[in-house]
Amino acid sequence: MQIFVKTATGKTITLEVEPSDTIENVKAKIQDKEGIPPDQQRLAFAGKQLEDGRTLSDYNIQKESTLHLALR
């Protein structure tokens, strides 16, 4: 499925993911596309910060959802 990640600079990244993917996997995909190390990424959805060990389906993130990326 496709999801979107909006960066602090307003850029939107499109990612191909599975509901079973962990947040860690998603951060690795962002690193592949943007070169941002996962340990510098903070992802949020619906106002909640997402934890590495959880999956997209844990957070009820569905196709075409938009996550927000902040850098630490």
Rank of each mutant, 00 (worst) to 15 (best):
E24F: 13
L71W: 06
R54S: 12
F45S: 03
A44Y: 15
R54G: 06
D58K: 03
I3P: 00
V17G: 02
A70L: 08
E64I: 03
A44N: 13
Q62P: 10
R54N: 11
V5Q: 00
P19N: 07
P38N: 10
L69H: 02
T22K: 11
Q62S: 13
A70D: 08
G10K: 06
L56D: 00
N60F: 10
E64V: 03
E16G: 08
T22D: 05
K63V: 08
S65T: 08
S57E: 08
L15W: 01
F45K: 03
K33D: 04
Y59F: 04
D21V: 05
L56K: 00
L67F: 03
E64N: 15
L71A: 07
F45R: 03
Y59W: 03
T12D: 05
K11Y: 12
K63P: 15
L15V: 07
E64L: 14
E64G: 13
I3L: 06
A8L: 09
S65D: 14
D32G: 13
D52W: 03
V26E: 00
E51M: 11
I61V: 09
Q62C: 04
D32A: 15
T22L: 12
T22W: 07
T22Q: 06
V5G: 01
I13H: 04
Q40L: 14
R72G: 15
Q62A: 08
I61C: 02
T7R: 10
Q41D: 01
T66E: 07
E34P: 01
T66K: 05
H68S: 08
S57C: 04
T14E: 11
D58P: 01
A70P: 02
G35I: 02
K27G: 01
T22I: 08
Q31T: 11
Y59N: 03
A70K: 12
R42P: 02
D52S: 07
L43K: 00
T12V: 15
K33N: 06
S20H: 14
L71K: 08
T66A: 04
D32Y: 08
G35F: 06
H68A: 08
K48V: 14
T12W: 06
S65W: 04
P19G: 07
V5H: 00
Q49K: 09
A8D: 10
F4Y: 07
Q31P: 01
L15Y: 02
K48S: 10
T12Y: 06
F4I: 10
L71P: 08
I23W: 02
G47K: 05
L50V: 03
E18F: 14
Q49A: 11
T9L: 10
D21P: 01
T66Q: 05
S57G: 11
N60R: 07
L50P: 01
V26F: 02
H68P: 01
E24S: 09
A70F: 11
K48A: 14
Y59V: 02
K6S: 07
G47R: 04
T12R: 11
E24K: 12
R42T: 10
K27H: 02
V26R: 00
Q31V: 05
I36R: 03
I23P: 03
L43F: 03
K48E: 12
T55S: 13
I36Y: 09
K11Q: 09
E24N: 11
P19R: 06
V26K: 00
P37H: 14
K33L: 12
G53Y: 13
G53H: 12
G10F: 05
S65P: 02
E34V: 10
K63A: 12
S57P: 03
I36D: 03
V17F: 05
R42V: 15
T14I: 09
A44C: 05
L43G: 00
T9C: 05
T12C: 04
K33I: 13
M1K: 02
I30M: 03
L56I: 08
R72M: 15
D58C: 03
Q62N: 08
I30H: 00
T9M: 09
I23Q: 02
L50S: 01
E51S: 06
L56R: 00
L15A: 02
K11T: 14
I61Y: 01
N60S: 11
I3T: 01
V5D: 00
I36H: 08
Q31G: 07
V5C: 03
F45M: 05
E24W: 15
K11N: 15
E51V: 13
A70H: 15
T7I: 09
T22C: 04
D39I: 12
K6M: 15
D39Q: 11
T22M: 08
P38H: 13
K48Y: 11
